[in-house]
Design a protein around this nucleic acid. Structure first.
Lengths: 180, 180
DNA sequence: TATTATATTGACCAGATGGTCAGTTATCTG
DNA sequence: CAGATAACTGACCATCTGGTCAATATAATA
């Protein structure tokens, strides 16, 4: 079954793209991690960009499922801020690699115009909007910037080496601020 | 005077490295911004890495001066958290390009082992330690992680396109948290 | 087993990139 | 003005990288 190979390549891609920037990861890198020849990657994926997108998408869906659950319906969020935050921080704790992958190329969204990058940018923006929805459902006020700040701080902390900033601290800061 | 040219190259480098990632900026890019031939860059700077470091260092010193002032002395900080934060946020407001340059390659500090990258990593770490010192001087408790979170959120917000997250919001969030 | 479809590889290419260097132009100084 | 020093350029190189493709090996099927 070639699907086994495809999966191995994707796993290698996830690993590589989570650990280094898009530009710094070569197809050769991925191939070597997957124990496969470079040309084989192109048998399963049309381009580096598409491969990245697929890896990113996978991680991103995992995140969405985890923090918004399955039963979310059109702008109505059952979960409240704290519940949401707990899932989010848990994701940081348990799925650091995925979050890294999601976050690492965020700034590229604003410079690259290709279909794939715009696809990711849009998805991420919608995610932030949803977060804003969660926040404003409790505070009552428009929370777009709060949501962006929240995703930024959780996201960028994922890029730090493990142990540098504990998820607990992040949770505290976000909820209570520095002056607690 | 060749120093004029050197300065022009450095300015171009600042601009380029602030707008795209290190890997995505080519020496040709910088040369073209500076209206200079690529080979001339090597007349003034030994390598791309060194050029980046110098541009980074410049921006970083500006930041340090701005937030810690000139009269800081060996671990004794006159300024308190709010004062510090105001300078920091002001820097984000007025020197966004510099902050971008400082922040963009932060994750590279952890993968690249060369002298220059380690130099920058160390400087940044010391900076965070100083921030921790400022915080703990008021709260009384060890604040290493708070400081890391704080620099992370301000830093990553600098990488967003202008207008996406206002410095005022960031300030609010950091001080008071989401639940205000 | 013979044939066909699927997987996998090695050799190769074109373009980009960091960096070098011999040589040319401009500037300074005696 | 003449020579020396500093500033600058163009051509070139080695390497890397994304991507292609014809050829081969493996698995499925009739």
């Amino acid at each position: 079954m070639g699907n086994k190979t495809r999966e191995a390549i994707l796993k290698a891609a996830r690993e590589a793209f989570a650990s280094k920037s898009y530009a710094d990861v070569s197809m050769e890198d991925i191939a070597s991690i997957a124990n496969v020849k470079k040309s084989l990657i192109y048998y399963y994926f049309p381009s580096k960009e598409e491969l990245f997108k697929e890896a990113w998408d996978e991680a991103f869906h995992k995140l969405e499922d985890r923090v918004f659950g399955i039963s979310e319906e059109d702008g109505k969020y059952v979960k409240k801020v704290k519940q949401f935050l707990r899932s989010y921080i848990d994701f940081l704790r348990n799925e650091r690699q995925s979050l890294r992958l999601i976050e690492r190329e965020k700034t590229r969204f604003y410079s690259e115009k290709s279909k794939n990058w715009q696809y990711m940018k849009n998805k991420y923006d919608v995610f932030v909007q949803k977060v804003a929805g969660v926040i404003s459902s409790e505070t009552g006020k428009s929370a777009a910037e709060y949501a962006r700040a929240l995703t930024d701080i959780v996201g960028s902390s994922a890029l730090l080496p493990e142990g540098q900033m504990s998820p607990d601290t992040i949770e505290l800061i976000i909820i209570k601020g520095i002056q607690h």
